[in-house]
Design a protein around this nucleic acid. Structure first.
Lengths: 108, 108
DNA sequence: TTGACGTAATACCAAATGGTTTCATATATA
DNA sequence: TATATATGAAACCATTTGGTATTACGTCAA
């Protein structure tokens, strides 16, 4: 389990790729459909899709001569986990702070 | 409000920078302290810290001739928001699916 | 005030990145 | 079968990135 997070974060570093993900939330799309929404060549978009696929953020299924790209919810797990580490860390610190304050007030 | 997310995601794309963040969770550190934990020059670490600062993920305070680097919880908001969009999206889709199933079963 | 220390700033380099163009391959369709 | 369509793949290019080394600057302490 516990997929490597590097390919995921690498994939998310480019604004075009994040925009592609946002658009795939609306509908699954072929490479041609995705590239219609961007001012760059189909080849460039294809490269971005490859990076997204390597990062596990999308899945690709073949339908005849078309490749249909779709979001892969599981691929977002590395980001969830990474963020979770820090959120948990801050939660714990807040809890510790509260505990310390209560302890202090017990001296009133 | 609503900080630009590009500098944030850019900052998170490098494994060294994510490791620096993890270490800053344990304790605030000067540049020299951070660079002691990595097999690269202080100058290289300093560049990473600059990128992290540009991304809003850390804050730097001056204490004499030292610069103390610390995590900035607010800087994580772009990631929280970005992830939240997709989580919300999937939640809604799941809810819609459940509703559709219930509706279908009402024909029994 | 004079070093020593912590950091900033710059120039430089190799490799990665994001784009292009061109050509090849596989599948639909007339 | 012949042609159009959808994609894959490779070569190429400019810019960015992540590292280095070197030098300069501010601050502490003897």
């Amino acid at each position: 389990m516990m997929a490597a997070q590097q390919p995921t974060f690498k994939a998310l570093a480019d604004p075009t790729r994040r925009e592609i993900l946002r658009q795939l939330a609306d509908a699954d799309m072929t490479i041609a459909q995705v590239s219609n929404n961007f001012d760059m060549t189909r080849a460039a978009v294809k490269k971005h899709l490859t990076v997204l696929s390597d990062g596990g953020l999308i899945t690709v299924r073949t339908k005849g001569r078309e490749r249909i790209n779709a979001l892969n919810p599981e691929g977002f797990a590395p980001v969830r986990d990474w963020l979770g580490f820090f959120e948990q860390f801050w939660d714990d610190r807040l809890t510790d702070l509260k505990t310390a304050i209560e302890k202090d007030h017990s001296n009133d």
